[in-house]
Amino acid sequence: MRRYLTTVSLSLMLLTLFLGLCVSALGLGLSYPSLWPREWDFSFLSEIGSRGQLFSSFASSLWIACAVAIASTTSAFAVRLISFYSQPEQRLQLFIFYLPYLIAPVVLAVALQILFLRLGWAGTYTAIIMGQICITLPYAIILQDGIWGQSLRSIVQMGLNFGLSSFQILRCIIWPAARGLLILSTIQTFLISWFDFALVQFLGMGRVRTLTLSLYTAVLESDLQQASFAAIAIILPGFLLMLLFYRIFIQKATSI
């Protein structure tokens, strides 16, 4: 019963949030203290492509987030796989993984910008992707920690004992054990990149426009409709991914 009530209240909260954003996106004359618009304006839907570059911002955000998620998750998996077999010093490993979080994001961004200016990458997608990977890669490495425990080591030893090749061990033992957390890691790193504002603004130098930047601009310009559409576009993927991979989220969230 308690679980049912929690699910219903959470769903209602999310639904109210979406409804509120939809009302402010499609309603005209919605101003304080009124809660309901005077009239509805659906013309915005047909103009959405031309106004405020929402589509291009969406495409940019999607491209950056996908690149960051895939690169971070696969690189983190590779780093973990190598350290699983080579067994380097644990404390040194942890220090390296947590190092980016010891540095303030703004300091990291400034340092990266100087580097990217020298490399000629400033204001490009590459700069933003590389900058975000500096944050998401250690995060993915830490998140994937749950895969590489003593239990997996024992199973791998058992596989070696039965004469399995390295490829068979990867395919039959490591991959099934890692699959769930790799999906979770991809989703989480995707969302970190998707929601990022500071690095995009700083490293993009105004040349790369993502959804978070569009939302910020719309709020500055008091364009309620555009801001609401941008907000819906920003939060929608998170909810969709959560729904699609509900089981993995719940299982892994309780096991971490």
Partner: peptide, 27 residues
């Protein structure tokens, strides 16, 4: 020479029959 761990090491996603046959993967 097959080593049996203190805690039985089984593959959680495989059933009993698949776990037993797992040792024959390389044969």
């Amino acid at each position: 020479m097959i080593y049996l761990h203190q805690h039985p090491v089984l593959l959680p996603h495989l059933n009993v029959a698949q776990n037993i046959l797992f040792s024959l993967k390389a044969t």
